[in-house]
Design a protein around this nucleic acid. Sequence first.
DNA 1: CCTTGACCTTCCAGTTAGGGGAACCCTTAT
DNA 2: ATAAGGGTTCCCCTAACTGGAAGGTCAAGG
Lengths: 141, 141
Amino acid sequence: MNIGDVARLSGLPAKTIRYYEDIGLVAPLRSTNGYRSFRERDLHKLAFLGRARSLGFTIEDCRGLLELYEDSSRASADVKKIAREHLERIDAKVEELLAMRKTLSHLVHECAGDNRPNCPILDDLASCSHAAPKKGKRVGG
Amino acid sequence: MNIGDVARLSGLPAKTIRYYEDIGLVAPLRSTNGYRSFRERDLHKLAFLGRARSLGFTIEDCRGLLELYEDSSRASADVKKIAREHLERIDAKVEELLAMRKTLSHLVHECAGDNRPNCPILDDLASCSHAAPKKGKRVGG
DNA sequence: CCTTGACCTTCCAGTTAGGGGAACCCTTAT
DNA sequence: ATAAGGGTTCCCCTAACTGGAAGGTCAAGG
């Protein structure tokens, strides 16, 4: 199979598949003309990666999961650990977003949204009463 | 004030403040020795930016908000529009994360997490029954 | 006067997970 | 011969910074 075929079958863009080869997640063969030649096994890996990515696992998580997937003597505890940590990251992010959401929706409701300049949103942003946001990784970007 | 002072007062890292100058969000003066020299007004702007960023506004949002903040003839509708759109982005992201969370927490509960290889998490990732994730910006990264 | 240390400067590279596009090769059909 | 529709490599771009190197400035201490 050429890259276009696996792209269609896996649902991943060809660019992404090349990238995954670049970083060592898949290792397709090469035809004599230089084209990548994918086996069933490569296709399965790519589908696995696509599914894992769609659940929000990072590439490094995927690398670990793929390794465990291919290791028939794995311990399910190792898989579960990766998943649980990811779940915790998701929960943390949701918490963070909901905190933002709460403040924002309050401000949006307060704002008249007309052609006058008076604006509670700007008032809030400009007010000096917020705790200095010092340490802690900025996740919201 | 030197950059260290405004960093302490605003809670923003000096690196970030230099970056904000780079991209034209603040324009401190320069002392004869080449050091940046911040006025009260610059400090206020930086505090404003820090607060807006902590609410998850993008840098471009911040640029717009700052412009409106400094325009006394603004319409609050313009501010509200930026905030409302941001709120919608947050809601979309929360939805996405909760969908992931739902699947993941289910899988984590199903997995024994012991030293045996059998693992429902890997089974799910490897199953071919998932809709091909084609278009739509990947937000989870 | 010299040094130490804390500050400041600029510039370069790296981060995530690819996307866009150029320049070029391979194959098949017209 | 050429056009279309694959494929290839290569490099730059994204957001919003962070880290680090190499070096200038300033106040204090010996």
